[in-house]
């Protein structure tokens, strides 16, 4: 069947060098169809290459950790690693909690109530990565500067976070992210 059609087309072509309307339509169709199939083929080859650069299975597997909160005193912070990222866990003082609650009504860049950022007001758990360009803010250690709002300060580009980890000043657009976590009992949590 295919051969027959080609045969006809070729004999026509040899008879008259000028193609008929039909011929042109058919040729356009064949060109477009070939190009389309080629494009789909190329795209389906490119996708595995592109997707191979996404996180691999063994990276994705490291998704949950458990943390013992027992040794942390009031006013102390610890940093744990989760998915290669630092997670800040702070046992806040009464003063810090009341400062955070008081600022619920302040002019916040990203409006979030302190109560929505914690499960128990005493414990603040968040990803310790500045939402500007990914530096780790200072303020975990007692000797480090805590910025103008007594929380955290990112030294890279000068973002100030309050005692609830909310952005108050500087270039960062968002509050420090609160990861998904769950209290297993009074003194331990599971992140992830």
């Amino acid at each position: 069947m295919v051969n027959e059609i080609e045969g006809v087309g070729m004999s026509e072509a040899t008879q008259s060098p000028e193609s008929t309307e039909d011929d042109v339509d058919r040729r356009d169709f064949l060109v477009l169809a070939t190009a389309a199939v080629g494009a789909v083929g190329a795209a389906s080859f490119v996708w595995p290459l592109v997707d191979s650069m996404n996180p691999s299975a063994e990276v994705l597997a490291l998704s949950k950790i458990e943390v013992d909160l027992g040794p942390i005193e009031e006013g102390q912070s610890i940093t744990v690693v989760w998915q290669g990222k630092p997670v800040f866990i702070r046992r806040r003082t009464k003063v810090e909690i009341s400062a955070a609650v008081k600022d619920d009504g302040a002019d916040l860049r990203q409006k979030e109530k302190d109560a929505d950022r914690t499960q128990k007001p005493e414990w603040l758990v968040m990803i310790g990565i500045c939402t500007h360009l990914g530096c780790i803010p200072l303020g975990q250690k007692a000797v480090e500067t805590k910025g103008e709002y007594g929380g955290w300060f990112c030294p890279c580009h000068g973002s100030h976070y309050d005692t609830s980890g909310r952005i108050r000043k500087g270039p960062a657009p968002l509050n420090l992210e609160v990861p998904k976590y769950k209290f297993l009992d009074d003194k331990s949590i599971r992140i992830g």
């Binding site: 592109v50 650069m53 996180p55 691999s56 990276v59 998915q83 290669g84 990222k85």
Partner: peptide, 13 residues
């Protein structure tokens, strides 16, 4: 960003 990193932070990938 995740695609560029091949993970959730700058790492071996």
């Amino acid at each position: 960003v995740t695609w560029l990193w091949g993970g959730f932070a700058v790492d071996n990938a």
